[in-house]
Structures are given as structure tokens and as C-alpha cells.
Write a protein that binds this DNA or RNA. Structure first.
Lengths: 209, 209
DNA sequence: GAAGTCAGTGAACATGCGTACACTCAGATT
DNA sequence: AATCTGAGTGTACGCATGTTCACTGACTTC
């Protein structure tokens, strides 16, 4: 029993912790996480300022937790997308689709990452850069197995992987900035992303040949 | 005489104004302009907080002035670079060189733009986006005259122009983040930029053909 | 040389901040 | 049933902030 009934308290604590993280994400949408105060977060989470410390040592630690949560969300989405059969039929169209839809679903997380990547505290910034670097390396492994690319040098593959991730980040930024319910703008961004990827892929085929 | 001698006062005012802008730029390097306070700026500029209001109505107005100054610096650099004969021999190598060197020279301005582009106040952010959009259009005009591109649709040219500007922004961000006096890193960024541009140009040649 | 202008001063204010501390009292442990 | 634990409370503090107001005095204008 000691372990089974002993849940309710942990569960409540976890709920509050998540409320704090959600509050930070929501408040950050307006002016950026870096300018949100501890008191604002606590207020919005329906908790007294001092209670914040039961969950995070500082705002920086909250920021790091948000980085972690954001990237795990992103990775989960990509993993799910890879199971989609459409992905293998037309990889470019599918990637553009997945990108825009994923960002729309977890706008707050993407907004957090894209803003704090450059505007956040040094600690949060470093964490995001590290995650993005990991991402580039992961994508490089996938790319290295594609035709046209398998003979490239490691450096070249990394470079092209960076190019893709960069464009992914930029496109995500655009979707984040996009006003809600504007299907026309959304389609425009998707179309732009498709064209950019197609152009880069065309470059692949002739690289150093 | 009324106009000739009446300079010293304006000149002094202009000097203070510039001191305030320099202070904001310097302080912003650490944690981003958006989190710099009016009092910090005034202190760093060697002036009492209230004197700030003689030059700017608010921090947002200061931000807009910095956006303007940053982009006029950037445009001047590009104009000068276009006079360089090397530019016409190998446009890609020259562009990579100019990019890295320009950013190094006015690091503070580029850092300001790249951070506040996403992290700043809505007003400053909008101003930067507008300037960057102008930039994309300007570059599109130049690109439209290149071989391989002259037959493209306007939309396609805009798209490829966005691709270039995006990469310029990303590379500038990297140079800004780069520690000083690291010639190796610098060369690495330049080489990365060259490869990316070459890859994109290769795509040009086969686009829709 | 008198009068006026206005960049910069200095004191004062209300407000919001991060954090320390002693507390309560539901829920877990014994 | 008695005890303990720790998530959340409430008060209090010193400090930095944006903005106000009346001011000074060098430089410009007349």
C-alpha cells in the first residue's frame, strides 16, 4: 500500500508543476519568456510566489525544463510522422505538411524555442543550441543513407543537414508569427517550404559531379 | 550667424543621443535589448534617467532608432562591397567573405537585429521584419537578372531570395555568437556559407527544367 | 548685454520584483 | 490514532524600475 496510495500527493505536485510550465509558456507568447517574472508565472498558475520554489530553483531552471519538454514534443511528432505511409511516397510534401501542422498544434513550445534560441538567458540559449545541434546530427544520419548523398563526405552531409534544420527553424518561426485561422497564409508557407526543399534537393544531384 | 554658430548645442545633443544608442547596444549584447532598462541605458551613457526623455519618448522608440541605424549600416556595407572587383570574379566566395567581415566589424548591430528579430517587443520585431522583407525584395531584383533565373516566375525568384536572406541571417547569428579571435571558427563559418550557397546555385540550374 | 531656450539635474513617488521566514494543515507513514 | 512531511500560504524586506516635477545654467537669440 505504501506505494500505491502514495500517489495523490505526487500527482497534485506534478499538476502544479505543469501549471507553472504552462503559465510560463502562455505568458512568454506575448513578450518572450526572458521578460516574464517569477511572480507573473506564479500568479498565472494560481499559486503564491514562494510556492514556485517547491518546483524550480530559479527561472533559468524552469527555462531548461521547458527546453526539454519542447524538444521531446518535437521528437515525438517526427517519430509519429515517420510512420505515416505518405512520408515515403512524397517526402517533401509530407515534410512541409508535418512541419506546419506540428507547429500549429504546439505553437507555444515552438514559439518558446524560436524566441529563446537567440533572445533568452545564456543558459537557456546554450541548451537550445545543444538540442538543435543534436538534431542536425540526427538528420545527417538519415540523409547520409539517401541516394546521391551516400558518397558525400561527412562534412558535406552535416552542412546540408544544417541547411535543412535552419530552414525548418525559419519556417517554424513564420508559422508561429502567423495569425490564427489564416488558411491562405498557411498554404503559402507550406508552398514556400516545399519549393525551398525541392531546390535544395535539386542541388544534391549535381553536387561535386 | 544665427545658423552657423548655433551648432555646438545640436552637436552636443547628437553626441548624447549617440551615447545612449551605443549604451543600449552594448548592454543588449549581454542579455538582449528587450531586458535592458531605461535606467541602465542612462547610467551607461553617463546621463541621469530623466535626460533620456529629451531624446526618446520610450525604449521602443530607442529600439526603432537602432533598427534604422543597423540596417543603414548594413546597406552601406553591401553597397561598398559591390564596388569590389573581386565580387564579380567569384560572387560566392566574395559574398561569404563580406558577410563574415561585415558582421565582425559591426557585431553589436547585427547582434541587436538577430536577437530582437524574434525576441524583442512587438513594435521592434515588426520593424525588423519589415526591413528584412525589403531586403528580400531588393535581392530578388538583383537575382532576377542572373542567367538561369531570368525566365523564372516572380514567386520563384522571391522564394529563392528569401532562402538566401535566411541563410545570411543564420550565418550572421553564428558569427555573432562566435568567440572573438577564433580564426578557425571564422573560417569554418565562411566555408559553410560558401558550400550552402554553391548548393543552392546548383539547384538554380536545374529548376523546373 | 538682457531674455529665452532647453539639455541635463536631483529628489520623490508608486509599483513590481526576488527572496527569507515562520506558518498551516492535508495526506503519507508508522 | 499519533506522528511526520512537505506543498502551498502570508507577511515582510530591501531594491530597481518608469515617470513626475521643479530646478539650473550654458548656449542661442534678439
Amino acid at each position: 500500500m505504501t506505494e500505491l496510495v502514495g500517489e495523490s500527493r505526487q500527482v497534485q505536485k506534478e499538476r502544479t508543476r505543469q501549471a507553472i510550465m504552462d503559465a510560463a509558456l502562455a505568458l512568454g507568447q506575448q513578450h518572450g519568456f526572458a521578460q516574464v517574472s517569477l511572480r507573473q508565472v506564479a500568479r498565472h498558475a494560481g499559486v503564491v510566489p514562494t510556492a514556485f520554489y517547491r518546483h524550480f530553483e530559479s527561472m533559468d531552471e524552469l527555462g531548461l525544463a521547458l527546453v526539454e519538454q519542447s524538444f521531446s514534443t518535437l521528437r515525438r511528432m517526427i517519430r509519429e510522422a515517420q510512420r505515416d505511409p505518405q512520408m515515403f511516397e512524397n517526402i517533401i510534401d509530407a515534410a512541409a505538411e508535418v512541419l506546419v501542422e506540428s507547429v500549429k498544434v504546439s505553437k507555444a513550445h515552438f514559439a518558446f524555442v524560436s524566441r529563446e534560441r537567440v533572445g533568452g538567458s545564456p543558459i537557456v540559449r546554450r541548451a537550445i543550441r545543444h538540442e538543435l545541434d543534436l538534431f542536425v546530427s540526427e538528420l545527417a544520419v538519415v540523409l547520409a543513407r539517401l541516394p546521391n548523398i551516400e558518397s558525400w563526405s561527412t562534412d558535406d552531409v552535416q552542412m546540408v543537414s544544417r541547411l535543412f534544420v535552419r530552414n525548418m527553424v525559419s519556417n517554424a518561426e513564420e508559422v508561429v508569427e502567423m495569425p490564427d485561422h489564416r488558411a491562405d497564409l498557411e498554404e503559402r508557407i507550406k508552398e514556400g517550404a516545399r519549393r525551398q526543399m525541392r531546390l535544395i534537393v535539386l542541388g544534391f544531384e549535381r553536387w561535386k559531379s
